[in-house]
Structures are given as structure tokens and as C-alpha cells.
Design a binder for these strands. Structure first.
Lengths: 94, 94
DNA sequence: TTGACATGCAACCCCACGGTTGCGTATGAT
DNA sequence: ATCATACGCAACCGTGGGGTTGCATGTCAA
């Protein structure tokens, strides 16, 4: 896992919104996700821009994708987040 | 606290190294921190570039600074990190 | 088989960001 | 009083990232 890819993936507000949707629904189509961002978050974005964001998330290991017929199905993976956040926070056992 | 500022602050590898140093020493001079990055992490960076990074960290609330005589003393604050990381991770009580 | 649809790919644009350069300022030791 | 030092400020530069546009491809329903 590459720290740099993960942090860069999190640096963009649109990608963070995507992760918000993923934490609600772990599995979504690219088309579904795009529709959701536009309708529920009033994001003005094109399909191509979304595809680029997905590529970034995928390279960071936060999303894995699989071609299923006509659709590209995206699956959320929160493991990179867990490993990344412990970097500067001392363990508290309270 | 502004999420965007925090995530953008974390997006740069040099700033992450700074936070590494801060988690060891919560309080440092800008001069000290610069020297540490150069010597311990082989980072080639100028004082002015460091000052810019500190500004970014400060706007994100991760660092507060105070002028003490000739020096600028920097104090680490991990609160923004704590509030930010819980966004996508469901609580696990194991 | 035809056509709508979901996606892939490549070239291009714009601007924010990290870095440098140059100069000015104030503090403190001698 | 002098001078090295730690820092602030502003202008400039080059690159990368987010976005768009245009076109090609593959899948599925009728």
C-alpha cells in the first residue's frame, strides 16, 4: 500500500463525496455513483471526470472494480484508511 | 474546522514528514524542524518552502505558531486528525 | 440487426501548488 | 554599534491535476 496514493486520493472533495456514498453502499455501478453525486450532492460533473476519479481511488486501493456485462461495478475497501490514520495518533486505551 | 484544508495539508509528503517530527516533539522551532527534515530525512528544501508548508498546516489547524524572540515556535495539534478520520470508518466495538 | 446505452481512450486547457529568488526586518550576541 | 541570524513578504516559474471535448468500443434489448 502506498501512503502517497491514499492521501492524494483523499485530497479531492469530489472523491471524498464518493467515499461517503461508498460507506453507505459498498458496491455500486459507475453510472449509479455518478447519478447519486449529481442528484444528492448537487455536484456538476461529467462521466469522464468521474472515471478519472475512480482510477485514482483504485490505484490507492480504496476501490476495486470489475466489469460486469455492460457495467463497471465498483467495490469499496476501507483497509487503506485504517492503516493510514494511525500514523500520528498515539494509542489511547480509554 | 475545515475538512478540505486538513486533507489538502496531508496530501503533501513533505508536510507528512513534518507531522512525523511533530508527533515525536510536539513543540519545535521552524529552524529546528527544517534542520531535522534535511538531516534525518534527506529532504532537500529551503527555509522559504518550509515556511509555506507551515502556513498550510496552520490554516488546517494542525499547527499553531507563536513568535518567541527571534524564533517562531510551532506547536502540534492532532485534534483535526481525530475528527477527520472517523468519517468513513464504522465504529467497531471489538 | 439495429440502436440506445454504459464505458474506454486520448488530446487539450486552465489553474493551483510546490519551489525558488530577491529583498527587507527584527532580534540578540559580541 | 555592529553583524550574524531567524524569519517575513512578494514576485516569478514549471509541473501536475481536475475537467472537458471528441471519438471509439462493447453490451444488451427490441
Amino acid at each position: 500500500m502506498d501512503d502517497d496514493l491514499v492521501f492524494n486520493a483523499l485530497a479531492d472533495p469530489t472523491r471524498r463525496l464518493m467515499l461517503d456514498e461508498f460507506s453507505e453502499r459498498g458496491e455500486q455501478t459507475l453510472y449509479e455513483l455518478t447519478a447519486r453525486l449529481i442528484m444528492r450532492h448537487q455536484v456538476a460533473i461529467s462521466r469522464q471526470a468521474m472515471a478519472k476519479h475512480i482510477d485514482v481511488l483504485e490505484r490507492a486501493g480504496l476501490v476495486s472494480s470489475e466489469k460486469r456485462g455492460k457495467y463497471r461495478v465498483l467495490v469499496f475497501n476501507d483497509e487503506p484508511l485504517k492503516t493510514v490514520i494511525t500514523r500520528w495518533l498515539k494509542q489511547r486505551n480509554e
